[in-house]
Design a protein around this nucleic acid. Structure first.
Length: 508
RNA sequence: GGCGCCGUACCCAAGUGGUAAGGGAGUGGUCUGCAAAACCAUUAUGCACCGGUUCGAGUCCGGUCGGCGCCUCCA
């Protein structure tokens, strides 16, 4: 069974065919570190986290590279605003990035290179492009204060690379008429882009054959991806907004330099929208990961991001994240119930396997197989979550002892325990691949309750106090008072559940 | 203007030409002192609209309407 992935370059799904199986090299464009990440960033890195986890689950030997762009105009501007060194700004937001990703349970990449640590490699590639006449050197634009420029600029000649535009499906001639490209007579073609930029006064710089300067935006990814993964990557990924010009330019630079295909498979995730419009810094309609995880459990954000296929647009609303948070709570409540049942009942019984007991007509029930089919099909996480939901429902069915309603017969508790133990094994890969439900259930549920108490300004001590009073009333068979207290708690957002031994509560 | 994507129930969302996953909300039920949770049942002869191909189309083709994206920094 092959893993099929949508390839932006060919506009269809292709089998993943690594150059040197089982090894797979994947490069994903990382963040420019000048600000907190927003939900759009979260989507991209959660999407590729699933890719990484699933490739490993499938037994592939993945090397995952994700860079940090730690030198760039925006970082320099931010540093200037704050009166800090650009390197300080960059380091701060690298740290913030890690905090966000950790909260979202996004595993680090294997290699996380930074642009500023690869300047000699970048210079070498620019020199190579100049030698092959794909790059050309021009005088830097005049400096506003009239002083002499510190170096010269190097541009890539788009017309020297015949296939330019293939990834994004556009034609150089047609783009000219777009008229939205700047006119700079130093460039041979308006679409030519900078490989190396002369330093302006007050900007960070590195010595180079073209004087003091710094890398252009696109060259870093060509350099760092090929350095760690070789000339041809198995997978190159990023957000849809990088298709043009960033990835187009990466292809041009890399293939012009090496003469080899740069990436076999291009994956691009869709946007996160707000009111059906793209969430972006420039539109100012973004929510940072920090904002959202302050209000909702980070795992709810992760779940929410997986409810839509990674290539489709995803509309962000509080209601959706709240719903996701309820689903995650359902996962952990089920896991907690399974744990507690198994702690009390010893499994026993043979020959009654999950796939037979819950057979669908003549077909055995094989959730793991279906799960793999879903992810094999271009990482279809919504389908995978659907299967997850079914599986959770079956666990609760067994826990309630209501399996008769589904399979037409009643099972003895030891056999139910055995099936639930098997259930845990079926569920485990879903936990590890999706990165959901992997925390200790009690810990999660306590945290969620605290978080929701904060959200609704409920004092847990007050709840406990009122519940004690209600227990006394119930004991005295004063149901009127007991129900009155329960109604009062419910009005505050506290849901009371009378379980067998004790009363538990949660916040909605 | 060029290129491209999308339009599935009240809401979110899968859907590989062959009887429309899953979740939320709603309704009925089981359980419960009553509830809540959980579970069971139920909710699209229908997939924006109009044509076409086919034994058969949400799925393929053409057109119409509506929404969005890229073409400039952007995950």
């Amino acid at each position: 069974m092959a893993l099929r992935i949508y390839n932006t370059l060919t506009r269809n799904k292709r089998d993943l065919e690594p150059l040197a199986p089982p090894r797979v090299g994947m490069y994903v464009c990382g963040v420019t570190v000048y600000d907190y990440c927003h939900i759009g960033h979260a989507r991209a890195y959660v999407a590729f986290d699933i890719v990484a986890r699933y490739l490993r689950y499938r037994g592939l030997d993945l090397t995952y590279v994700r860079n940090f762009t730690d030198i760039d105009d925006k970082i320099i501007n931010r540093a200037r605003e704050r009166g800090q060194e650009p390197a300080v700004v960059a380091q701060q937001f690298i740290d913030e990035f890690y905090r966000d990703m950790e909260a979202l349970n996004v595993a680090p990449a294997d290699i996380e290179p930074r642009v500023t640590e690869h300047i000699p490699d970048i210079i070498a590639l620019v020199e190579r492009l100049i030698a092959k006449e794909h790059g050309y050197v021009v005088d830097a634009a005049p400096v506003p204060d009239g002083s002499a420029p510190a170096g010269r600029d190097v541009y890539f000649s788009v017309r020297s690379f015949e296939p330019y535009g293939r990834l994004s499906g556009r034609d150089i001639e047609e783009m000219q008429s777009g008229a939205r490209v700047d006119v700079d007579e130093r460039k041979r073609d308006p679409l030519d882009f900078a490989l190396w930029k002369a330093a302006k006064p007050g900007e960070p710089w590195w010595d180079s054959p073209w004087g003091r300067g710094r890398p252009g935006w696109h060259i870093e990814c060509s350099v760092m991806s090929m350095k760690y993964l070789g000339h041809t990557l198995d997978i190159h990924g990023g957000g849809k907004d990088l298709v043009f010009p960033h990835h187009e330019n990466e292809i041009a630079q890399s293939e012009a330099a090496t003469g080899q295909p740069f990436a076999r498979l291009w994956m691009h995730n869709g946007f996160v929208n707000v009111n059906d419009e793209k969430m972006s810094k420039s539109l100012g309609n973004f929510f940072t990961i920090r904002d959202v995880t302050a209000r909702f459990d980070p795992e709810a954000v992760r779940y929410f991001l997986l409810t839509t296929h990674y290539r489709s647009p995803l509309n962000f609303t509080d209601g959706q994240v709240e719903e996701a948070e309820n689903r995650v709570a359902y996962i952990y409540e089920t896991l907690a119930r399974v744990e507690s049942f198994l702690a009390q009942t010893a499994p026993a019984g043979d020959g009654e396997e999950f796939e037979k007991v819950f057979a669908r007509g003549d077909e055995p029930y094989r959730p793991r197989h279906e799960f793999e089919q879903a992810l094999d099909d271009d990482f279809n996480t919504p389908r995978a979550l659907g299967l997850l939901s079914e599986l959770l429902r079956l666990a609760n069915l067994l826990l309630d002892g209501k399996e008769q309603e589904q399979i037409g017969r009643k099972l003895k508790p030891p056999l139910r325990a055995r099936l639930l133990a098997e259930w845990q094994n079926l569920f485990a890969p879903m936990q590890t691949v999706l990165g959901l439900g992997a925390r200790p259930p009690a810990e999660f549920l306590d945290q969620l309750r605290l978080r929701r108490c904060c959200r609704r300004e409920i004092d847990p001590a007050w709840v406990e106090q009122r519940l004690a009073e209600r227990a006394a009333a119930k004991h005295a068979k004063d149901y009127t008072l007991a129900d009155q207290i329960r109604a009062e708690l419910a009005a505050a957002g506290v849901e009371v559940r009378d379980a067998r031994e004790k009363t538990i509560w949660r916040v909605c």
